[in-house]
Write a protein that binds this DNA or RNA. Structure first.
Lengths: 253, 253
DNA sequence: AAGTGGTCTAGACCACCAC
DNA sequence: TGGTGGTCTAGACCACTTC
């Protein structure tokens, strides 16, 4: 004669906490406002700090919060839409885009990149580092891999080092006729160097956009761009993207 | 005076652990193999279980591991590429795609959706639920919002309920001329209902793909698709995507 | 120096799965 | 019933920022 248990699956505390906090953020806080510190919040809700942190982590993952060590937890602004697919059929650096050249060097690429570029495992390629800013905040770090065969006329005299060298590689690249490109998006975690560029801690969640550029019947360049997953919404297609935030739970019919 | 500390920033234990485990996965384990349980692993590495779990969590986030309660931790297969942008200029359900219709009903959409569809806050819309399978595994759950004005000829007799009703909505939708579409990708966490469809726990990381379909000079439908972030790589563009996995750290020059 | 978030510990109990 | 991963606790110390 079992007691009818509609709540046979008790909701985890951190999940419930997250819901409560989320609603509080919607109604009682405004963007940029700082929350009470974690110890106070945990005490207020009667949970251990670790449990409170589990809820905060999810809210940060969803772009609702921003936490900075030594400073505090603040209410994050809505995610910024970042166009990723509108430069269709354009080489990187062609338009006046938001990318900022960092430097460039001739290095041995990771094995997986060498496979995609169909270069030999011992062939060095040009690696151009760029970073992307929006509203004064860094949103992406990119590594652009360009086989030497794609830019045969690049002279060492033209391109001594650093930014100038990066500019020269892109300039040479644009002399090729771009035949197409494709992209893939997946979730990753920031490597130490990317994290530094993105002003995040290592391991922070990132959206990795891998783009192949085709010319001359093969992959002429490969871009691996790492976007901050907490602050970015990647947009593809005709216009600027969609302003959808799923915060309120859809009510059942 | 100062001892030269090259290691002035000690690496967190979980981060180092993650690196060690990652290399072990590459060299000593094969896909599908089950790892020792968390308590044993923690003891073997001389850390607390929570610390070990922090490392495992990251590896799962990166798609390297798969953990199932009551079963164990297994080595995950490489992420599956899922085409998201190749159905350019095609209504959902047009081609024989991998989507499986679930059901449909007339409901009040979330406020954010109503704004995007430019319907009134009190207007109900058709909501079609679909799920997407790949290799026998669920990879995505979708909610397709269709304003009643987009499918004026839909008769209640044609579409009584469930799958048949969903099919009827899509059929009517395809009578419109699609003028364009755009998409946005962002990181989210699975709601309870999505989690169930995706065979994950609530809060699991997901890639949310929001697509607007334009017809008749306005947004004729809106799709919010939730993909498993651990197992999926979303591909856009001309071909099937790129097989890049950034596991090995890029070596410095 | 004080206060913040980040890391870590050593436990405990629970929900789920397979046997 | 035993073993797994998932949740939770109550502490401690560390790294960082700000004053």
């Amino acid at each position: 004669m079992g007691t009818t248990q509609l709540e046979s699956v008790p909701e985890p505390k951190y999940w419930h906490l997250k819901t409560v906090l989320s609603e509080a953020l919607d109604s009682e806080f405004s963007v940029g406002e700082i929350l009470p510190n974690e110890r106070d919040l945990a005490a207020r809700f009667g949970v251990a700090r670790a449990t409170l942190r589990q809820a905060l982590e999810q809210l940060e993952l969803e772009g609702r919060l921003q936490r900075r060590r030594g400073v505090g937890t603040t209410v994050a602004p809505p995610r910024v839409g970042v166009a990723v697919g509108t430069e269709q059929h354009a080489w990187p650096g062609t338009a006046t885009d938001a990318w900022q050249l960092a430097d460039s060097a001739l290095e041995l690429p990771p094995a997986a990149v060498a496979v995609a570029l169909e270069t030999g495992p011992e062939d060095t390629v040009h690696i151009v580092r760029r970073s992307r800013m929006t509203h004064g905040q860094p949103v992406a770090a990119e590594l652009l891999y360009v086989p030497q065969s794609s830019v045969p006329d690049l002279s060492a005299i033209d391109a001594p080092s650093g930014t100038a060298r990066a500019r020269a590689v892109l300039r040479e690249l644009q002399r090729l006729e771009l035949e197409g490109q494709d992209s893939a998006v997946e979730l990753g975690s920031a490597r130490a160097d990317d994290a530094k560029q993105l002003d995040r801690l290592p391991g922070a969640p990132v959206l990795v956009v891998t783009t192949r550029f085709f010319a001359g019947g093969r992959t002429a360049a490969l871009s691996v761009a790492t976007y901050r997953a907490d602050t970015c919404r990647l947009t593809f297609g005709d216009s600027g993207g969609v302003e959808i935030h799923q915060h309120p739970e859809r009510q059942a019919s």
